[in-house]
Write a protein that binds this DNA or RNA. Structure first.
Lengths: 337, 337
DNA sequence: CTGAAAGCGCTTACAG
DNA sequence: CTGAAAGCGCTTACAG
């Protein structure tokens, strides 16, 4: 049988109120009494029931985090950042993979709300109006990661995808690549893909290049997604290009392998640019030129904001843009810092 | 204000008991009444408070998972396996990174118990007696991942590390590598490192090779850990070897890069064998020869066992050994399937 | 400084 | 088929 507060109260010959006070470090307890209670706690092996406490104080000290897929290192780092901050402030995290699946997202949100999470971090590549409304009207605090709420009702932490893509594209174009293709997401109706496309188009415009939607390919944002797409292109041999912009580094790595498999070399014959800078990118050959995002920080900052909101230290909503960095490495020919 | 069960009871002109019954799908409710309640729920936007429910029914439908570090893809896959199984049975997961830190482990266990997790999955490279005792006497169900309880009191899911290392070592030795070094963990007092060492030693013995503890190097089990160690060895130039056994693929990748950086080639000049088969291993050059573990399955199976225990469908403790596979790829010279 | 008591939002035996 | 009431294990205003 689990020991509960009344058991230690009996053991220490005090009321449950007193036990509660020493457990919660409330000062106004006689030192002797405190000692006695402490001893009783140790003797009985009492562990407070956080569920009962939560029900009473209407606070669980747990946060929910909704991410597409913990297996994608991009999101893994966000979760780690979130967890570390939670550790500091004595919160815990309920993890929920949503697989870009709207049904899973809805269900996940409901469960997290029902489990009385004090707050929820929603991370994704896109935020539908419906999801935004649900999050806005949820009975707990919410912070977005990687995606903003254009209506300004929800706080968020992310990078400026347009300007990041623009910066990269300018460098790539300046390196002489006037003929690029793009490996975007499976479907391009997502916020992030859209913004990055905007950035690339802006660079094209400035550099006097024509942007043609045919240059966009939609593939799975995984290594094999990039691999298969590139293999297909090379085998058909109908497209000419000197560089491919991949919307994440996994796709870039896959594309590189497909190119090599066909007997070509990166960056000698084809260049490949990535995005996100996952932790392997500087350990593969060639090292991938990419945009690095402070994923860990995005998770950490979003969590800190959320906790502040949960503890009413912060009530103002804001969208925070964190810095990114162009990582010039070896997979794009002719590019300079 | 959050709407609670009494609010919908009023709205539907029934008692809270009746509302509770329809919420929980208890059959003995008049169809009309049910309709009325359902309507009231929809109208009020009622969401049950799972915390209150948990307190009453003494079950939270949440599991805790203690892992060293979610950033290590090995553990990431375990978590994903766990989460998917949780999704099926309507459980949630509280994630807890312990960083191989005993203090963090203790604290984490306490918190998970206090938050009334129905069960806990403990994943690690080692299980100290103290931790085993704490887990055994915890007031919730426990399943171990990757590490067994030698006393048989706790269930576990893992591969047979000794025989896996043995199988790999035999192949490597048969390929002509009679001069190997080993990159183990930072400290070798862990269960997994010990078992793998045993496997290698067994192979040595069978093949008539002499095993010398000097061949073991202790480094961080990360890419840079393997990289730095190998760089150091090569620069000092005092050790001769033709192959290095790395106790995970990250170290192997790092070692490969260090070797290449010194102007050598893998596997032409040196061979490198990995362990665990993380998802990048067949996409790097050279592809890493390694042991693949069904990480996802370990997480999934452990979780299924745990849920069965939580729901009293299973009470017998058992240690389950799941199959591993030797993945012969390109990083070890002369090796055959 | 300490305790009795109400109440957090549910579920469920019990009675009808 | 439905409802009144007890109780899950805590916290905390209130009284002393």
């Amino acid at each position: 049988m689990k020991v509960k507060i009344v058991d230690v109260a009996k053991e220490a010959n005090v009321s449950v109120a007193t036990v509660s006070r020493v457990v919660n470090n409330i000062p106004l307890v006689n030192e002797e009494t405190r000692e006695r209670v402490l001893k009783a706690i140790k003797k009985t092996g009492y562990k407070p029931n956080a569920i009962a406490r939560s029900l009473k104080i209407q606070k669980t000290n747990t946060l929910g985090i909704m991410i597409p897929d913990i297996l994608d290192p991009f999101y893994t780092w966000i979760v780690r950042g979130a967890e570390d901050v939670c550790g500091i402030y004595n919160y815990n995290i309920i993890l929920s993979d949503t697989d870009f699946n709207p049904e899973k997202e809805k269900k996940s949100l409901d469960v997290l709300v029902e489990k009385q999470c004090d707050g929820i971090i929603y991370v994704g590549k896109n935020l539908t109006d419906e999801m935004r409304d649900r999050l806005t009207s949820a009975s707990c605090e919410v912070v977005l990661g990687c995606v903003p709420d254009v209506t300004g009702k929800l706080s968020g932490v992310l990078i400026d995808n347009t300007s990041a893509a623009y910066d990269l594209a300018v460098k790539v174009i300046d390196a002489g690549h006037r003929n690029n293709i793009i490996f975007s997401d499976e479907n391009d109706n997502g916020y992030i893909a859209e913004k990055r496309l905007e950035g690339i188009q802006k660079a094209y415009k400035e550099k006097g290049l024509e942007f043609n939607p045919d240059q966009i390919y939609h593939c799975l944002s995984s290594i094999s997604g990039g691999y298969n797409q590139m293999k297909d292109i090379l085998e058909k041999g109908e497209v000419s290009f000197s560089n491919v912009f991949c919307f994440n580094d996994q796709m870039a790595l896959g594309a590189i392998r497909a190119i090599e498999e066909k007997g070509y070399s990166v960056p000698r014959d084809y260049s490949v640019a990535g995005f996100n800078d996952f932790w392997i990118s500087e350990w593969v050959t060639p090292k991938i030129t990419t945009i690095s995002q402070p994923m860990y920080d995005i998770g950490a900052v979003a969590t800190r904001m959320l906790i502040k909101m949960c503890e009413k230290e912060e009530t103002e909503m804001k969208t925070l843009y964190v810095p990114y960095e162009v990582k010039v490495r070896d997979s794009v020919k002719g590019i300079s810092e």
